[in-house]
Amino acid sequence: MTSFFQSLGMSYEAAWFTATIAGILLIALPLMLAVALIIYAERKLWAAFALRRGPNVVGPFGVLQSFADGLKVFLQETIIPSASNRGLFLIAPIITFTVALMAWAVIPFADGVVLSNINVGLLYILAISSLGVYGVVIAGWASNSKYPFYSAMRAAAQMISYEVSIGFILICIVLWAGTFNVGGIVEGQRSHIFGFINAYAFNPLLFPIAIMFLISSMAETARAPFDLTEAESELVAGYQTEYSSMAFALFWLGEYANVLLMCALNAILFWGGYLPPVDWAPLYAVPGIIWFFAKILLMFFVFAWVKATVPRYRYDQLMRLGWKVFLPISLFWVFLVSGYLMFTGHFA
């Protein structure tokens, strides 16, 4: 893109700067649009699972529902409770949303199409997503109200519990790919199985951790069945109880942007990212970004499906699953995968 702006007669620096800003906006703005549409799609899906009709009034088939909701909250009054800590109360949604956007900087959308191609891309995603816990904790604490505070503490303990096994799962993938570069991991999956299937998930050694990663990513984003942070029967609306107007909407946007990010990570780490499913020349005629989006949507369908069908966990069950099931299994899998790769001379 830099060369395009250079052809308009800019100097290299100016062209680079314009191209980068354009790239950032090309990620951030469509992401927000995608979040709006995905919320609509999810409501339609749940409705279908429950044999209801879902949103169908605003616009054709109700497509504009999310935009109408957005406009409504935009015009609402921002209520800052008198007991709250004003500054932190307003900073919390900013942190949540900023963090949700930031991780997309290293996601490759097609071969070579990535905003920032760093060596430690996967660690960057891990680092950024570990910041997500602060938005929730600060929101709960700054509200100075009982339910948000309980919810924030639950959320923090839940997120850090599942981050452990996510870390070990990522190590299994990195062992196989040999790099922390996200694009490199996608390329590592080219003709991975039988020389023509482009996905780690069909590898019998990696399939179990693909499932574990999917479940952990639901827990990490506090989605149903792990949505203990906003269990409305116990905690009203969780850490968002005291929020209103766009500050409330930012938590929603951030949450769904995180869900999309986790879907994208599932697609990248286990299902071949922007590569077509099989290594067959005619399939490469379809642009990589289409494959990538198709995979993200498929993962999102799984997320919505789970949310519509699985009842909520209890908190002790959630912690048990994280610490007593996923942690030992993923640790054992690091041993298994590394041992297998050493014996087969993968690194030689």
Partner: peptide, 9 residues
Amino acid sequence: PILLFLVVA
């Protein structure tokens, strides 16, 4: 770009 992204976000 990451720094710029942080500013924009």
